[in-house]
Computed example of a mutant assay.
Amino acid sequence: MITPDYCLTMARYNAWQNRQLREIFETLDRTTLEEQRGAFFGSILGTANHLLWGDRIWMSRFGVGEAPGVGLGASTGLTGSGGAWAVERFRTDGRLLLWAEQLRSVDLVGNITWYSGAAERWVSKPRSVLIAHMFNHQTHHRGQIHAMLTAAGVTAPLTDLFLMPEGSPWL
């Protein structure tokens, strides 16, 4: 279904997108980041925190790093500010890039089984499907952040995959 090259491309895309968000967040005041905007996870920061939480929970299921210390319900409060989010996002993107750079085809096969708090049951799915889901989840929630930034009058980042710069991990 997916290849190590796909995973590396998507990890680089994720890092590039998050670097742009970190740069934008540095220019925004706390009110703009935390204002409730009617999105599923409320605010720009709440959605960014949920996305960081999601990446960490999936990476822990893939055997890379610790799971967040909070559950889904508290994911929007994972960090307390744009600055704290930027630091944690940078660290997580680095970990994700290192993981993707080391993947081999054999690492993409087999099932992962875990207890899903969201589904309230044990789930077992192919590793490749779950990795694709992680990258799709990133894109989905960054799209929500993009819409909230635009609604707030902020120029949102460039998001087209085919326009991604080449040659660096964009951290």
Rank of each mutant, 00 (worst) to 15 (best):
P157W: 12
A151W: 04
G110L: 04
T3L: 14
Y6A: 07
G42L: 07
I131G: 05
L96D: 09
Y115G: 08
W114C: 03
A11E: 02
L33E: 01
L158R: 15
E101V: 02
L158A: 12
G38P: 05
T159W: 14
I145P: 05
W99E: 10
T9K: 09
M134N: 13
I57D: 05
L171G: 03
N49T: 05
I24E: 04
W170C: 13
L45E: 03
L171R: 06
Q138I: 06
V154L: 05
S168L: 10
A48V: 02
A118F: 09
E101D: 11
W170M: 11
G167V: 07
L28T: 03
R89T: 02
D93W: 00
G46K: 01
G65H: 08
R61A: 06
A152R: 10
R30V: 02
T47H: 01
R127P: 04
A39N: 08
R12F: 03
F62M: 15
R30Y: 03
N49Y: 02
V64R: 13
D29K: 01
L149H: 04
V129F: 11
L171C: 04
G77E: 11
S124R: 08
E66C: 02
N18T: 09
Q20C: 10
Y6K: 02
P4Q: 03
W53I: 02
W53R: 05
F62V: 15
R104M: 03
R37E: 03
I44K: 02
L72I: 13
A74I: 07
G143K: 15
T27S: 13
G153D: 04
L21S: 10
F90E: 03
M134C: 14
A11T: 08
Y13K: 06
Q144E: 15
F40H: 08
V123K: 00
R127E: 13
F135Y: 13
L33I: 04
A118M: 05
W99M: 15
T9L: 14
G73S: 07
H140Y: 11
E166L: 07
S105K: 09
R37M: 14
V129W: 08
P165C: 05
Q20G: 12
D93E: 05
G71F: 14
V109I: 11
A15H: 07
L98Q: 15
F90M: 00
L98F: 03
R37A: 09
A67Q: 05
G77N: 15
S43H: 02
W122D: 08
R22A: 06
T92E: 07
H140N: 07
N136I: 12
G82P: 00
L108Q: 09
R142P: 05
W85M: 01
R91G: 00
R61L: 13
S168K: 08
A156G: 11
V64Q: 14
R56H: 12
N111M: 10
H141G: 13
M134K: 14
L72T: 11
G143F: 09
L72H: 14
H146N: 13
W58A: 09
P169Y: 01
S116I: 00
T32C: 09
A15T: 07
L78R: 08
D107L: 02
K125D: 07
L96A: 10
L8F: 01
I131Q: 08
T9Q: 15
H141E: 13
T76A: 14
S128E: 12
R91A: 04
